[in-house]
């Protein structure tokens, strides 16, 4: 049996967990390639016109995997706790959305569902999935714990590496973006590359101690309901003093970001900040120009040319 994992959405947050889990259970898997023009086109052809760019990309990756594996892996998340620990409803719906888009194809989907408000924890979700994969409970438990450990270690290394960047003398720019946007080869990576070419270090808000960030976010915005956005908002507060400027990156037309960015722009004072919207259109010239002028301003400011 071979599992196909779409390289999109939650993959970027959970790939160590998933890949280790499957490896420990001896399950063969493939991951769809980095996003490219073909994948975007596939996504645009099958997803609803109005859905966000990131979900079109997800659909494109699923489309790529059809007929290349036995099961396509589409996990679902509804809540991480109370009504104040929710996610964009896209993550709640994605399993059924894909199932309906591709009904004709009769896709075989491997899935799990996390809905802590209804007592479906991550552990329970993985146990169920392990059972579906025909593995013994002890085996599944062991695989899950090893995978969790691997996830923790990987996160630690990531945070350490970023901490080293924070000591750099270069201009440091905090990039605030969901991992599935900023790590995406086609839509996010060009931003990091451009910043590097302009001589800056890109500090990623998504590389952060998530729990600490969530707790911090509660103090900034009391009713913010989305867990993934809380992590980013808290990260801004944790990294703010160590960076020279902030870039908010969102895919068009992201629901949660539409409001959360507004909150950030209105409440976080004292750092230059810009807002980039990714629409997946070809050409990066517009983005590059905006980044260049932003970096110019930051450089001037650092040299003492602009006083606030």
């Amino acid at each position: 049996m071979k599992i196909g994992i779409p390289r999109a959405f939650l993959y970027y947050k959970y790939h160590v967990l998933w890949e280790t889990f499957f490896e420990e259970l001896g399950i063969d898997y493939i991951v769809s390639p980095e996003t490219n023009k073909d994948i975007i086109k596939r996504g645009e052809a099958h997803a609803m016109d109005e859905s966000c760019l990131s979900s079109k990309i997800f659909t494109g990756h699923v489309d790529y995997l059809i007929d290349k594996c036995d099961y396509i892996f589409i996990p679902r998340v509804a809540t991480f706790g109370s009504h104040k620990e929710t996610v964009c409803s896209k993550f709640q719906a994605i399993y059924d959305v894909i199932n309906n888009i591709y009904r004709e194809k009769n896709l075989k989907i491997l899935y799990y569902s996390i809905d802590i408000l209804n007592k479906d924890t991550e552990l329970k979700a993985f146990l169920k999935m392990g059972k579906f994969l025909g593995k013994k409970k002890v085996q599944v438990l062991k695989a899950y714990y090893i995978a969790k450990q691997a996830e923790k270690t990987a996160k630690m290394i990531e945070i350490n590496n970023q901490n080293n960047l924070l000591n750099s003398d270069k201009l440091k720019i905090l990039v605030v973006s969901h991992p599935y946007n900023i790590y995406d080869e086609y839509i996010g990576k060009p931003i990091i590359n451009t910043l590097n070419e302009l001589g800056c270090e890109a500090i990623l808000a998504c590389v952060v101690d998530e729990k600490k960030a969530r707790d911090r976010a509660k103090k900034i915005s009391g009713t913010l309901p989305w867990t993934f956005n809380k992590e980013l908002v808290g990260a801004i507060s944790l990294y703010k003093e160590k960076v020279d400027g902030i870039i908010l990156v969102s895919s068009f037309p992201c629901g949660p970001d539409s409001l959360v960015n507004e909150m950030i722009l209105r409440r976080l004072k004292g750092k230059p900040i810009i807002n980039l919207i990714l629409d997946g259109q070809e050409g990066t010239a517009g983005m590059e120009t905006r980044l260049e002028s932003f970096v110019d301003i930051l450089n001037l400011q650092k040299e003492g040319g602009i006083h606030e």
């Binding site: 629901g255 507004e262 209105r266």
Partner: peptide
């Protein structure tokens, strides 16, 4: 149950 849950805080801020 959707973005409406966050309307209030942003309306108030604006």
């Amino acid at each position: 149950a959707c973005r409406l849950n966050y309307y209030g805080e942003i309306h108030e801020q604006i």
